[in-house]
């Protein structure tokens, strides 16, 4: 195992309704290594297990069996409290439906992960302002989520994911609810974070064109990896 790997999944299985008569396995022994600083796309039909895999990578969920080591740490041995810390410090989630906290301003949403990290009010605010500038949302900082367009919401969500400067960004169909122009804008932000800041990025998408822009495209079918090839990369 080279320390070059950010994520190492070995024979990861995930089953639902364990012990029930209708128990079924969604992931059938996934082996997947993702290098530090790699931008990887996961594609596959609906229901193939992409989100399930993503949740395991993001330590929101635990595999039913198999091993997972993240940045050299074996996840199986950790308690919930430690998983929270890992999510807070190492991982930035970006969702298809944004999941911004309603009734909180955009900048407050960005501050949230830093709040859980225990940063001071001042530190949070300064960092949040920087992040809002990075996604070009400075002028909307005081807006509530329901006052923002889809693209604007997703940019706030990206800023929020970046709050504690995580090593890994996990994006589950981040452009699924956006038009092509906005999609382009969001993808450009990812490329920038990848190239300029060396983030490891895992992108789930249904768009073959977007997938091709990454370093590597992994295809899932029925809970198994059926293809793993190089991407074309970003122009």
């Amino acid at each position: 195992m080279s320390s070059d790997n950010m994520i190492e999944l070995a024979q990861v299985r995930k089953s639902y309704f364990i012990g029930h008569p209708n128990e079924f396995e969604v992931l059938h022994g996934i082996d997947l290594h993702i290098r530090r600083g790699e931008f990887i796309a996961i594609v596959g039909a609906s229901g193939s297990g992409k989100s399930t895999l993503m949740n395991i990578i993001g330590v929101l969920d635990r595999p039913t069996s198999g091993s997972y080591s993240l940045d050299g740490v074996a996840i199986e041995t950790l308690h919930d409290r430690e998983l929270s810390r890992i999510r807070n410090h190492k991982i930035g989630f970006i969702f298809q439906n944004f999941n911004l906290i309603a009734r909180s301003t955009a900048i407050h949403n960005v501050e949230l992960p830093m709040l859980y990290a225990g940063l001071s009010r001042h530190e949070r605010h300064e960092r949040a302002k920087e992040l809002m500038a990075m996604v070009e949302m400075t002028d909307r900082a005081r807006h509530q989520p329901n006052e923002l367009s889809g693209g604007q919401k997703q940019r706030v969500a990206i800023a929020r994911a970046m709050a504690n400067d995580p090593a890994i960004l996990l994006a589950d169909e981040p452009t699924g609810n956006l038009d092509t122009a906005t999609e382009r804008m969001v993808m450009d932000v990812f490329h920038r974070l990848h190239e300029e800041q060396g983030k490891t990025i895992v992108l789930i998408t249904h768009s073959p064109d977007l997938a091709k822009e990454t370093d590597r495209v992994v295809t899932l079918r029925d809970g198994q990896i059926i293809e793993d090839r190089k991407g074309v990369g970003h122009a």
Binding site: S84, R87, N88, Y116
Partner: peptide
Amino acid sequence: TREIGTRKALGAPN
């Protein structure tokens, strides 16, 4: 519920 899920994803401990 969703808000709680989001907070947890962002690293809120129980």
